[in-house]
Amino acid sequence: MFIVDYIKTVFGGVKSLLVGMNRTGYYFFHHKEIITQQYPDVKQVLPERFRGEVVMIHDEKNEHRCTGCTACELACPNATIKIVTKFDITPEGKKKKALDTFVYHLELCTMCNLCIEACPTGAIKMDQTFEHSVYDRSLLIKILNKPGSKLMEGVE
């Protein structure tokens, strides 16, 4: 019986190996399921919810919706956002708090989406960019409000 077991082991083992080889051999000759992408040539369109970086929405009149309320700054776990406010003089002559610069540290951001959830006016959103590499760290500190932009009418 020892000999029978021995031969069974040998043939069973060889068969299991051949089954595995059949599988890899199948993929060698069938290239339909190739999963890699030709990255810089063919770029994948990322879904709209993909979180790549925080951007501020500006309309065609160069107006944004940020009131400088710092809700996003408070919501951020990493101190990624720093908001500098100024005081605008309204036509009535009153002083009103407004956004001066919206500083965004991309190098600290973990794309957790909490700032966007916190924003009461929907001024910021996540963009689908992902090619963030630069040669100098200072280039990652971004100012999100465009120069000369101002608060949209009617946003409080």
């Binding site: 060698f28 000759f29 290239h31 030709q38």
Partner: peptide
């Protein structure tokens, strides 16, 4: 190339 096709990749291209 052999390894790439068996691993459902393209390999060097």
């Amino acid at each position: 190339k052999v390894s790439a096709y068996m691993q459902i990749r393209l390999g060097p291209n």
